[in-house]
Design a binder for these strands. Structure first.
Lengths: 189, 189
DNA sequence: CTATTCTTTATACAGTCGTACCAGAAATTG
DNA sequence: CAATTTCTGGTACGACTGTATAAAGAATAG
């Protein structure tokens, strides 16, 4: 038994380039040939490493999720309170340099809502990923219901504000509204 | 000068059927042939009445916007306060029977964020439509900045909560969070 | 070296896409 | 009636889709 070993790193490289393309060109224009041309390989190279197009979608979503989560991993290690987490998360999600990533996120979100079967994994995690984190950072005395309520509200408001910001680009108005959320949280919402 | 008159009503009928199809089957599967088959006409009938596919998209978005706005027109006529409006709007947007319409709304929203040129009209109105209404219903004494801040927050939170609800279907948790938003608004957020 | 497996590319195939073209039916004016 | 315009459907064309197949080159083990 011999043979050339599987090159996992090569697949990771290709995935990174494919995700970059998705972030730049959008989710609805994600077809083998244009992606392959942009990456600089033949379409069959992509097919060989990712299998079917649906499997490539899954790989892209997993990687996108990693990118979006990793950027707040450091934060949660310091065990801050909910308001601090909300502030920092908002700072990072509203960073203009990451706008394209979140535009892709919402594009996937919208598609997932209309094809829940295909995007079952995405829909299962899109809220629960943050829910657990935001519940844990609240003061120990908080009862479960209140913690869940606050976490739900923080996730929803930040995402809603981000939708507004990405659509209008009106940073002043949206940041002003975000500040009032944080103020409400400090007054024990 | 004679000739058969243009049948505007026929176009309206077709548009209604096409929007129904879009609500049911999603925005990414909106192609001439399947739509025509579902509506019960030939593809050329649709092309004849709508022109290009992009023009059909615009017609669909206009009609969808009408459907979503009309459902809250009656409410604003009674000049209630912001909290009342927020409550009623949330009641109606979280109505399970209208879930498909809002899934389409978010699907369009996500696509629009990645193709701002094509969906410029949508992006211009998606926030401003509500902004003006929600600013107007606040008590006369409210200064402009506060009114804008509250309106922005209400729109964002309702949309974020709706995203959560449509993804998870967890009505109890999301409605609980919505209640806490209304409570915060009553305490002069 | 040979044998084996992975990687890459070229080619091809059936299907769908938007849409242009054409012909006939329907509805109007004169 | 004839003339004109809209409405509808059938057909066709080029472009693009996902993906299967086959054939090379590269990297390993024995």
């Amino acid at each position: 038994m011999a043979g050339r070993p599987v090159d996992h790193q090569r697949r990771a490289e290709l995935l990174e380039a494919v995700v970059d393309y998705a972030v730049e060109h959008g989710f609805s224009e994600l077809t083998w040939r244009p992606v392959a041309a942009a990456v600089g390989v033949s379409t069959n190279t992509l097919v060989h490493h990712f299998g079917t197009k649906e499997q490539m979608f899954e790989a892209i979503l997993d990687r996108l999720r990693e990118r979006l989560v990793v950027s707040t991993d450091d934060l949660l290690g310091e065990r801050p309170d909910l308001v601090t987490v909300a502030r920092v998360v908002w700072e990072r999600t509203s960073d203009p340099q990451r706008g394209a990533e979140f535009r892709l996120f919402f594009a996937v979100y919208g598609r997932a809502l209309q094809a829940p079967r295909q995007f079952a994994g995405f829909l299962e995690r899109v809220v629960s990923d943050w829910m657990s984190s935001l519940r844990d950072v609240q003061v120990p005395g908080t009862d479960a219901e209140t913690a869940t309520r606050r976490a739900t509200l923080v996730i929803a408001t930040i995402r809603g504000l981000l939708l507004d910001l990405l659509a209008t680009g009106d940073r002043d108005r949206v940041h002003d509204a975000a500040e009032s959320l944080f103020a409400a949280l400090e007054h024990q919402l």
